[in-house]
Design a protein around this nucleic acid. Structure first.
Length: 904
RNA sequence: GGACGCGUAGCUCAGUGGGAGAGCGCUCGCUUCACACGCGAGAGGUCGCAGGUUCGAAACCCGCCGCGUCCACCA
């Protein structure tokens, strides 16, 4: 026995921790993850990874998306395409800055003491220290990214691309600066975009407050935020509201402040809500801001960027937090008797997705990007199918959002990020926008000061598929790998990222950045809640890899994923682990046997016959061929759960449970029978062929165990990751062999069931006679697998002659007491199988009474079934209207059921 | 308020017009010479409810109930 195969003797289990690190090393050393840029993108295959946060760590979302992408990448690489998985990390402005700030705070330093330059320096150090973590974690998953060209959204080249885009779009007039009401996040002390705001349902108190009207009378307004009244600059009613027509044009007096407020008419006001009178606070409510713009109202900012009341709120309130101010304002209004009512009120409250703090809408000078012109071609691309969004339902979501797109606030009051290439002249105030810092103002030659703000992280992410390949330079990488083939992600960043990549890709490169968008499940905690660190519901994929192996985690995640959100299923991971171990043992078993019998090297040299002499060999080749076709089709259709589960079914349900069980009997015999060399070679050749194809087919899904097995299955020393993906050979499909084995499998199962019910011991061979058609080729298999000692042909024909086949005896119960046929053994039981029966000839040690009870149950089931099929066939219209094939099928079924019934 | 999705075995989920399935769990039996992370056999389901279309509905249509997600400027 060869030494290499001998190693397998003691490895009765697949142990991921022992092999995964070495395999990763071999893959990385092979250079196969890095394709030389060559050819056109249309003939190559590429995916740009959603760049993980540079200081982040691998979570379930990464693990699933990594498994999805790696499956596609490995599949296409094995198909022989030049394949690149573009890899890198995102600087993740707010998230990273917050992390570093927190660490500094622990040292007792805040960033302002440090200053901008030193702070940014610290973030780079932080990145150098923690930036490698997630990269190593992707490797552990087996992700075959091109690590040799890792990109970072703040790298020099990348930054040039970002600046270029800003300047281009500024010159087009789409990027502009404006004082506008924004979502202010007091947590990160920055404006954030609409998409980074999440609404939470909360119950607050809705206060009704009476404002006096100049010259007599009053209005009553309702608010959940009494503190903002300090910034009121008008009261509004609906223009059609008869009740208040006379109020319009008069003035109300703002309590506590004394400011005179115009009473205006505006369509926005709902007549049927509350009193139909609305306080207008342009500086702290997006709707009121719009009203204010329409009516040219003053904007009084009473809440500052620090989340505290400003001086404009008045001496009594300045410096208080918003919540403190609310209490104080209510108390004062109460004292003045102006609170008319308070009631519980449930509504949506905006929170920052980033910091978790309540959003404070306020007016701020920010940079915006008008999206109208960018959106139009991006809508068309999806409408026309140049970008496919899968599943289909997400297409509508995309289109709805894109068709109602609003300007994007792109400036952030942070230090970590791409600083805007905007230079204000300190002399004339002219705004200079340029790729690199000009020496002096273009207008007056005055001294320049660069904008403090940085760009929203997603601005740079939007350029990811092409900026990573060298854009705006015309590089071979860009030519070879852009546009990419598919973008895989979860739903949550469809607008935040995917939509913006499509817009920017079309605008800047003239091409869509990818042709498919695959939106995968969000994995929820087992209890259905969101997986999150703060809830404590997160499950660490690395721990799962440690416990079960990377293959198990990949398989499990793919198997549980679908078009909708799914709960994390530990069982599916377990199933993956079982599969890896099963496959490992199947190969181990076969190789040890083959090697012992004729040496695996020799066996490998044998070309498998496309039409082997045994029916089980023809059967497994046929089933394998179907599995190959199904698996490839499912991967190409992004149907990963069925690809994974289908693989499992083939390996367990066909390869191991049946084929190996059948041929395991043949292997030791062959080892001894030197004269039957042909049969031995043929079996070894088929077995090896099937195992090699199966292992190769499974590689994209479970790369580690398959790569490990390839060492033993392939003598060339070539890595499986760089080998060819097996293709389905149609000439191996053999429907007759499939039918024969299907029948035999059913028969074996039925006999086993019978054996179980009569308490036959596992190893006990029961004497029997096969009285059924369709087992000409498989009778010996049936005997071995069902542990029947079948009479030889001679004995059988003798016995058949001897059996009384008269109708009187046929319909009788199971016990056919011999007597009339003394030459043949008595039949003690009949087991119905497809095409006939197995006649049991010895009841020794069997509890035939138990079998009788079982038979009764089966009979009842059969009767019910027969009745149903009969009713169906007799139903008016069925025979006339149903397709002929269906009718015939039902008739055939009825015949079969009746035959079975007769046997019983 | 709008949109989308889901409700199938104890649990997690497949199944989209013609015999209710898988994994796990449960019961029974097996150290059957690859695997006890194994093997064999079983039990378990008014397919959320109510109508409709159809010869035929878990599947298609309508309504209701329950759950979830996304979008949205009613104080």
């Amino acid at each position: 026995m060869s030494e290499r195969i001998e190693e397998l003797e003691d490895r009765t289990r697949f142990e991921p921790p022992e092999v995964e690190p070495q395999i990763i090393e071999r893959w990385l050393a092979s250079g196969l993850f890095h394709p030389e840029p060559d050819g056109e993108a249309s003939e190559n295959y590429s995916i740009a990874i959603p760049p993980p946060n540079v200081t982040g760590s691998l979570h379930m979302g990464h693990a699933l998306n990594g498994s999805v992408q790696d499956t596609l990448i490995r599949y296409n690489r094995m198909r022989g395409l030049r394949t690149k998985w573009i890899f890198g990390t995102d600087h993740a402005g707010i998230a990273t800055q917050a992390q570093v700030e927190k660490a500094l705070l622990a040292e007792g330093i805040n960033r302002h003491e440090l200053g901008r330059e030193a702070f940014v320096e610290r973030v780079w150090e932080w990145r150098a220290h923690y930036g490698g973590t997630i990269v190593e974690q992707f490797k552990r998953l087996g992700a075959s990214c091109d690590y040799s060209e890792e990109r970072f959204t703040l790298d020099e080249g990348y930054a040039r691309a970002v600046m270029q885009v800003f300047v281009n779009l500024y010159e087009k007039g789409w990027i502009y600066r404006d004082r506008y009401i924004v979502n202010w996040d007091p947590g990160s002390r920055s404006a954030i975009s609409d998409l980074e705001v999440e609404e939470r349902r909360e119950t607050d108190t809705l206060y009704s407050i009476r404002y006096d009207v100049e010259g007599g009378g009053s209005v009553t307004i309702a608010t959940v935020r009494p503190e903002t009244m300090l910034g009121d600059t008008a009261v509004a009613v609906h223009p059609d509201d008869e009740r208040y027509r006379s109020l319009v044009g008069r003035e109300a007096i703002l309590p506590l402040v004394g400011r005179h407020l115009q009473i205006i008419a505006d369509d926005y006001v709902k007549m049927d809500f509350g009193t139909g009178q609305l306080k207008v606070t342009p500086a702290h409510d997006p709707n009121d801001f719009e009203i204010g713009t329409r009516h040219e109202l003053d904007q009084v900012s009473v809440i500052g960027e620090d989340g505290r009341m400003t001086a404009e709120a008045g001496e009594r309130f300045a410096g208080l937090t918003v919540m403190e101010a609310r209490e104080a304002v209510v108390a004062e209004l109460e004292r003045e008797g102006r609170i008319v009512a308070r009631e519980e009120y449930e509504h949506e409250v905006p929170y920052s997705h980033r910091s978790g703090q309540r959003i404070e809408p306020l007016i701020s000078l920010q940079w915006f990007m008008n999206m109208d012109e960018l959106a139009r071609p991006a809508v068309a691309a999806v409408r026309e199918g140049r970008v496919r969004i899968l599943p289909e339902s997400q297409r509508r979501v995309y289109l709805d959002w894109m068709e109602n797109i609003r300007p994007w606030c792109i400036s952030r009051q942070l230090w970590w990020g791409h600083r805007l290439p905007v230079y204000y002249c300190e002399t004339c105030g002219h705004v200079n926008v340029a790729l690199s810092a000009p020496d002096a103002c273009g207008e007056c030659g005055g001294h320049l000061r660069q904008e403090e703000d940085v760009l929203d992280t997603w601005f740079s992410s939007a350029l990811w598929p092409f900026a990573t390949l060298g854009w705006p330079r015309d590089t071979p990488e860009l030519k070879a790998f852009y546009p990419t083939n598919v973008l895989s992600t979860a739903r949550d960043i469809l607008f935040l990222w995917v939509a913006r990549m499509i817009m920017m890709g079309i605008e800047l490169t003239g091409e869509v950045p990818f042709s498919d968008v695959y939106i995968h499940s969000v994995i929820q905690a087992p209890d259905g809640r969101r997986m999150s660190k703060s809830l404590g519901t997160g499950i660490d994929p690395l721990q799962e890899i440690d416990r079960h192996g990377a293959d198990a985690v990949r398989f499990g995640l793919l198997a549980m994923s679908s078009a909708q959100d799914v709960r994390y299923s530990a069982e599916k991971i377990q199933q993956g682990q079982a599969l890896a171990n099963k496959l490992f043992n199947a190969v181990r078993f076969a190789l040890l046997r083959i090697d012992a019998s004729l040496g695996s090297e020799r066996a490998q040299a044998i070309e498998p016959s496309p039409s082997p002499s045994t029916v089980e060999d023809r059967w497994i080749l046929s089933r394998l061929t179907r599995a190959l076709a199904d698996t490839a089709a499912r991967i190409e259709q992004y149907d990963f759960s069925h690809a994974a589960l289908g693989l499992y079914d083939f390996v367990y349900g066909e390869l191991c449970d049946w084929y190996l069980e059948i041929v395991k009997q043949r292997l030791p015999d062959l080892a001894e029978a030197g004269s039957e060399d042909d049969g031995r070679q043929e079996l070894a050749a088929t077995l090896l062929y099937v195992l090699r194809e199966t292992v190769a087919m499974a590689h994209p899904l479970i790369p580690f165990v398959t790569e490990e097995l390839w060492r033993y299955l392939d003598d060339t020393g070539k890595l499986l990751v760089g080998s060819a993906y097996p293709s389905a050979r149609e000439n191996l499909v053999d429907p007759r062999a499939e039918a024969e084995l299907a029948r035999t499998i059913e028969a074996v199962t039925l006999v086993r069931g019978w054996r179980d019910s009569v308490g036959a011991r596992a190893g006990q061979f029961v004497a029997a006679r096969l009285c059924a058609d369709g087992y000409e080729l498989t009778a010996p298999l049936l005997g071995r697998l069902a542990r029947l000692r079948l009479l030889s042909e001679d004995e059988q024909s003798q016995a058949l002659d001897a059996v009384d086949t008269s109708p009187a005896n046929n319909g009788d119960a199971l016990l056919t007491h011999g007597g009339e046929a003394s030459a043949a053994p008595a039949v003690v039981a009949s087991i119905p199988i497809p095409g006939g029966t197995v006649e049991v000839l010895s009841g020794e040690g069997l509890d035939l009474g138990a079998a009788e009870r079982r038979r009764e149950a089966t009979k009842q089931k059969l009767l019910a079934e027969i009745e149903r099929v009969q009713a169906k066939l007799e139903r008016p219209g069925f025979v006339e209207k149903a397709p002929a094939a269906v009718v015939e099928g039902e008739r055939e079924r009825l015949r079969r059921l009746r035959t079975e019934m007769e046997v019983l």
